[in-house]
Computed example of a mutant assay.
Amino acid sequence: MLSTLLVVLASAATMARGQYAPTINPDSVDLTDRQSWCNAQISSCPILCLQMPNTTGALINSCSPNTLYYVCECSNGLSPNASQYSQTMPYFICTEANNQCVSKCADSTCQSACRSDHPCGAQNPVRVNVTTKPSATPSAKVAANTTTSVALGTSTATGDATRLLAGDMGNVYGLCVLVGGFVVGFAALM
């Protein structure tokens, strides 16, 4: 009886360290896909850890494609909420669970409910280190030195996507001008 209790407690402690919450049977997914999921999870862990306070990266970072069990523990002893991000095991499991739900549906209403009732990824992302913009008011100057946070891959407002696109277009335009300059220079030398 005591040995059974110790095994249960050890299992619970191990599970508490990792984040294991599959809603699918791992064997229902091709092993190659599960290996790809684990590779993405392992790649994401250090990045997620660096967004947490008082950490220098990942301390424990492992994933089993056979069980879909993974551990992402940061150097500060905490584990990030990987369900708030894409390219993590919770995201892949959620997406696959939705796909399996859709495959069992007979009509589009059921299919739509599979995905809308169980959204995957960040619903209320944890905000991380984004500097606020100063305005003309004196209190805004104080606020300009403070930071708020935004999860990777999300934006704080619709305008951010426009600014991001405009910034990327500026980079593309600059690259085109640079390459064009080289082509003109090369043509002049010939």
Rank of each mutant, 00 (worst) to 15 (best):
S135M: 11
Q19S: 10
W37M: 00
T147V: 15
Q111C: 10
R34C: 02
L50N: 07
D33A: 12
T67V: 09
C63Q: 04
M1P: 08
S44G: 05
E73W: 07
Q41L: 10
L164F: 15
C176P: 07
A10C: 15
P22K: 02
A143W: 09
N129T: 08
T147Y: 11
P119D: 04
S11Y: 12
N66W: 10
A187T: 11
V179P: 04
N171D: 11
V183N: 05
V184C: 14
A21K: 06
P65G: 02
V183M: 11
S11R: 13
Q123T: 06
N39P: 02
T95V: 13
S3H: 11
V102L: 06
S79N: 07
V184Y: 15
C45W: 03
G153Q: 01
S103C: 05
S36E: 11
R127C: 13
V184F: 15
L178T: 05
G159M: 14
C94Q: 01
R17A: 10
G153Y: 01
P80D: 03
G18W: 02
C105Y: 02
K141L: 14
D30Q: 00
K133R: 07
I93C: 02
A113S: 13
F92P: 02
C49M: 05
N124W: 07
L165N: 04
P90L: 01
T55S: 14
Q19A: 12
V128W: 12
L6H: 10
T23H: 09
R34M: 01
G153F: 02
S112T: 12
S139K: 12
S44F: 05
L68R: 02
K141P: 03
N76Q: 00
Q84K: 05
M190Q: 10
Y91M: 05
R163M: 15
K141E: 07
V8D: 01
Y173M: 15
A16C: 03
C74F: 00
T95M: 09
N124I: 14
R34I: 00
L50A: 12
S112A: 11
N145S: 08
V130D: 08
Y85C: 06
A106I: 11
S36C: 05
S139A: 15
G180K: 01
N81Y: 05
S3W: 03
S62L: 09
C74K: 01
T55G: 07
G18C: 05
R127Y: 06
P80V: 06
Q41S: 07
S155R: 11
C114R: 00
S155G: 09
V183P: 07
S139T: 14
F182K: 03
T156P: 08
S64D: 06
T14G: 12
S83A: 14
M169H: 11
R163Q: 14
H118I: 04
P53Q: 12
D117F: 01
F186A: 14
V177Q: 13
Q123S: 11
G180V: 08
S139E: 12
V128Q: 08
V102P: 00
D30P: 00
C101N: 01
L178H: 12
T14K: 10
C63P: 03
G18T: 03
P26R: 03
L178N: 14
L9D: 09
V7Q: 11
S116I: 13
L165F: 14
S43F: 09
A113T: 04
A188M: 14
S83E: 01
L31K: 03
A113L: 13
Q111P: 06
S36N: 13
